[in-house]
Amino acid sequence: MNDRRSELEAAPWSGRTRRYDLIKEGVAALVVVTIATVALSTLFGSPDDKQITFKEWAVAAPADFYATTVQELAGSSGTGGYGAPYNTASDGVNLGPLHLAKLMGVTHPVDTVNDFVITPLTTVVNSGPVADALKQWQSSDSKTQAAWATNYDNALTKANQDATKVPSGNYGPVPQLSGGLLSMAQAGSLDGALLSQGNYFQSDNTKQTLFMGDGSYFNDQSTASNLQGSTWGMMNETGRYPGQAWLWLYSFWYQIPPFNNGDSHPFGANADAWIMVIMGALSLGLIIMPLIPGVRSLPYKIKIHRLVWKNYYQEENL
């Protein structure tokens, strides 16, 4: 019976027809959509909040930039402890026993100490104290370097990121290096140096983006524009513009337990991975929806098709 129905539904239509000009319809649609697009573009324009530069950050929030630099030297920043694909500092998130990020390995190595601080500093002419600090840093072993940076990082955190209130201690050249990078950023020369890493051609902004994300300034700007993932930010756009509303379902999962609690194990802490899996499964579900029992029967039960074909059903007394 179902085979017969399917056969009938698949066969070329042999019933009544109507004249229908596909090309005219297409041209009309193109004209209407073009006019509507031109109208909205003229009326509203498009969003374009200025990009944040390291110069802007370092000038507007020098203490935050300075503290972030210290964290990069100590390896205690978000990037420093991230794990794959940037480094091996942690295992990263997991899907139960599956550590997919770790499995794929360190494909975009980021060394926060050298890539973010030391290499950029070597690309400019530094003042006397900073030049000396750089020499001292480069001539010591990594264990000493790490001890200096960690000492200073802890002291600065205790002093609420106020460098003037940090008691003296065994910090090596860390304060001078961080001060040097702050001056460099304020002068506007860190943006290019972070990107180029001593090269000419470069189109990968990974290092800039990771460094900027480690500070509070960038995150605060995002919070102010309501772009944080925890508040449906994925769907939003700067200003009053519409955002990627089609990401509503992806965004939704981050708002509900257990995924909205980063401290809950195993799901909240690994929300990124689990939500990826859920969305992958749901996308597949959409693609193969006609094969899913229950869902595929809905159009027969909720008879919206009676509206679509109301003329035909009337004319044919169906």
Partner: peptide, 18 residues
């Protein structure tokens, strides 16, 4: 359109008016 966006916020639900 570059003004601060207005949001509808009910419990965990939040959406910009646009």
């Amino acid at each position: 359109m570059n003004l601060k966006a207005v949001y509808i916020h009910i419990g965990w639900f939040q959406m910009s008016v646009t």
